[in-house]
Structure formats: C-alpha cells, structure tokens
Simulated scan of single mutants.
Amino acid sequence: MAKINPYTLQMQVTRMFQDGQGFFATMKVQDWLRERNEDPATYDIIFHQKPAPPGSKEVISIEIELRRKDGKPVDSWLQEQVNHHA
C-alpha cells in the first residue's frame, strides 16, 4: 500500500527552497517520478520561483517544469500532477 502524504510535491519543494534546501528538491522530484514508473533520467527538472498566491501564508511558490531530454512533449497529466495543489 502506498504511503499517503498530506502535502503535495509542489508544497514540499516550495518548503525546501524556503528552508535553503533547494539542492535536494531535484532528488525529491526524481523520487516522485520513480513512484510513477517514470525514468527520472528522461527529464530535465526546472524550478521557477513565483510569488505565492494572494491569501497564502507563504511568500514564494515554486513551480516545477518537466522537459523531456529527447524533445518529445511531456505528458500533460504528468506535468499537471507535478504541480498539483492541495
């Protein structure tokens, strides 16, 4: 049975950047891809820092972009899920 995490990947990555641990965010996304039977070596992982949405307790928000290294488009479902908000 898969473990359930109450925090989305996007929330975890944002927290890592806020805590000065952004270096580990790439590994977190790679683990997330492995859990979905995707090969992390297939993707470039890019992080975009944006202001947090109005009303949020956070100051910044990190958006995760996946790019396939072979130039093919990333599955839209996968890209949507990587940035899924609670």
Rank of each mutant, 00 (worst) to 15 (best):
P53Y: 14
G55F: 10
E38R: 05
D19N: 07
D44Q: 13
I64E: 02
I64L: 06
K50C: 04
R68M: 11
F17S: 09
T42M: 05
Y43M: 01
P6C: 09
Q81K: 13
D39N: 11
I45T: 07
Q30V: 08
K72S: 10
T8I: 15
P73F: 02
M1G: 12
N83P: 01
A86T: 15
Q30S: 06
V82K: 04
N37Q: 12
P53S: 14
R67G: 04
E58I: 01
G20T: 10
S56G: 09
G71K: 02
R36M: 04
E65Q: 15
R15T: 11
Q49S: 14
R36F: 02
F24N: 09
V59H: 15
H84T: 10
S76V: 15
Q12F: 00
F17I: 03
P51K: 13
R15Y: 04
D39C: 05
K3D: 01
P73V: 07
I64N: 02
K50L: 09
L9V: 07
P53L: 15
D39Q: 09
Q18V: 00
R67V: 12
E38H: 05
T14E: 02
N83Q: 03
T8G: 12
G20L: 06
K72M: 04
Q12G: 04
I60E: 14
H48S: 11
I62L: 07
N37A: 13
Q81I: 12
K3G: 01
R34I: 14
E65Y: 11
Q21W: 03
T26A: 04
N37W: 08
K72Y: 03
I62K: 02
Q12S: 07
T26W: 02
L9D: 05
H48M: 12
M1Q: 11
Q49N: 13
M1F: 01
K72D: 09
F23P: 00
Q10H: 09
V29Q: 07
P73L: 01
M16S: 10
G22S: 12
T26H: 06
T26D: 04
K50P: 00
E63S: 05
V13D: 03
T8L: 12
L33R: 02
A41G: 10
S56Y: 04
P54I: 14
L33A: 06
E63A: 14
A25Q: 03
I45N: 01
G20D: 14
T26S: 05
G71S: 11
V29H: 04
L9A: 05
W32V: 03
P53C: 12
V13G: 01
V13E: 03
L78R: 08
L66H: 11
A41W: 08
Q18A: 10
Q12L: 06
L78Y: 07
T42S: 13
I45C: 02
F24A: 12
D19R: 10
P6Q: 03
I45D: 01
G20W: 12
R15W: 03
W77N: 05
H48D: 09
E38W: 01
R36K: 07
K50Y: 08
N83A: 05
K3V: 01
W32F: 10
K72H: 08
A2E: 07
I60R: 15
V13R: 03
R68V: 15
T8H: 13
Q21F: 03
